[in-house]
Design a protein around this nucleic acid. Structure first.
Lengths: 243, 243
DNA sequence: CGACAGTTTGAACAATCTCAAGCCGCGTGG
DNA sequence: CCACGCGGCTTGAGATTGTTCAAACTGTCG
């Protein structure tokens, strides 16, 4: 409980080395924190490196940690007992995981690429929220945004046709890439067709057919299997909404 | 901000000490507030009474208010330009609306019964959050719970069959009624078949057929069109998960 | 009692799924 | 350097679930 980070000191950034140098910070909930706040959070965090395919959260397990993604991408999903899977979301640099108010993890999480995470002990993190109102506010905003995204996805899953779903997915990824300062037009898909399918409530076959169809119609161009050019973005946008 | 500059609203009714006597408080985000905190919040609130069918939030409009439901039930939904509708959720006593971090309303909201609301000017509410950390914490918890519910619904919409969806819906309503201290077994449906359909990503016809089917199989009993007895709750529970 | 809105039932249809086979790209090893 | 094999992707044909369109029913309210 002692150390240079205790008092508000503009020069204490030096103690928060890991955080201070973090490339993910501009995209993370820790973005609005001042130097000493960052230092306090830094003390709670552990950096993890995971291999692609590693499952680091198991739905139903007691919620012991929460995470911030520093580098790489991951997916979160829910399973039914018979193996049906719904992918809830894809996570990228700056995304936060483990907002559950209470109770066990409500989703599982798996690395899609090699993945770097900040891990926090959940209890300590919650306690820190009391002392770091800026962090709490950022977390609330973030959670509200996620809720909004989830609701948009409910519309997609409940009411959109297959090609509308795929168009929405592509544009969503594109916008997200732009926000992270990555290429918004030839977009890169870090996930396979079956992940896309389980995200959109379809089968791999249907996803594949729709890609082919959109390519045939000149709305997209595929470079290999994981790079997509959005020719005619406007047409894709109206497709999202049912045109 | 609720002074003479406001547009005239025939349903709007200012209150003096509404909070102290509020029956919805144990179920609301204001539950954890102390006396003086409650008083501060009270100063920001206006009580509204709406008739069934009244739309009080329009998706896309600037977010000027947030609301707490004091009595009655409502639905929130999103529309596609061609009229397809996805009901995002049904709201009951104690539910809070308008958590959006920023931007315009992301859903529309309509009263299903006669409805009593606490309304807050959004800017003032956000400012109050800074002074009322207990409220902010409650709001964060509430938002996280809603996010979890939305994700569960994504699983339903993306991966469950029609009878699984209906079974999940009935049990969800039942659990919710229990939490509010209402009857969990003969459950009351305040919404019509087409609302249920738009919530579950089905058509009214399919919902109706599934009700009939479940009745025939002895899993439920219908009393009129809006009262359902859950005979064989266990069977319904395993149906939810795909049995 | 009659009208109307909401619900139920029926039959044909369509979107998507399932099952099955073929293809492509890529890494490995000869 | 090329053939091989493997996993993931694509394509095809038929089955299925839920939708669509249409009509009959119910019960609620003037």
């Amino acid at each position: 409980m002692s150390g240079p980070g205790m008092a508000p000191d503009p020069h204490c950034m030096a103690t928060a080395e890991a955080c201070a140098a973090c490339e993910a910070r501009p995209f993370s909930i820790c973005a609005p924190l001042s130097g000493h706040e960052l230092a306090e959070l830094d003390r709670l965090s552990t950096t993890l490196h995971l291999k692609p395919g590693a499952t680091f959260i198991h739905e139903g397990d007691p919620t012991e940690h929460c995470f911030n993604i520093t580098q790489g991408s991951a997916k979160i999903y829910k399973l039914l007992p018979d193996g049906r899977r719904q992918i809830i979301g894809f996570l990228f640099t700056g995304d936060f995981l483990g907002t559950t108010a209470t109770g066990p993890y409500s989703v599982s999480a798996e690395a899609m690429t090699s993945l770097t995470l900040c891990r926090f002990e959940r209890r300590a993190f919650k306690e820190a929220l009391v002392r770091l109102p800026n962090l709490e506010r950022a977390l609330l905003d973030r959670t509200a945004d996620e809720l909004e995204a989830a609701r948009e996805q409910m519309l997609l899953l409940g009411r959109k046709a297959a090609r509308e779903r795929v168009a929405s997915f592509l544009l969503g990824l594109s916008r997200r890439a732009a926000r992270l300062g990555r290429s918004a037009d030839p977009i890169h898909l870090p996930m396979g067709r079956s992940d896309i399918a389980d995200y959109l409530g379809l089968t791999t076959e249907t996803v594949s057919r729709v890609f082919t169809q959109l390519r045939t119609e000149g709305l997209i161009r595929l470079n290999g299997t994981s790079e997509v050019h959005l020719l005619r973005r406007t047409a894709l946008e109206s497709l999202c909404e049912g045109a």
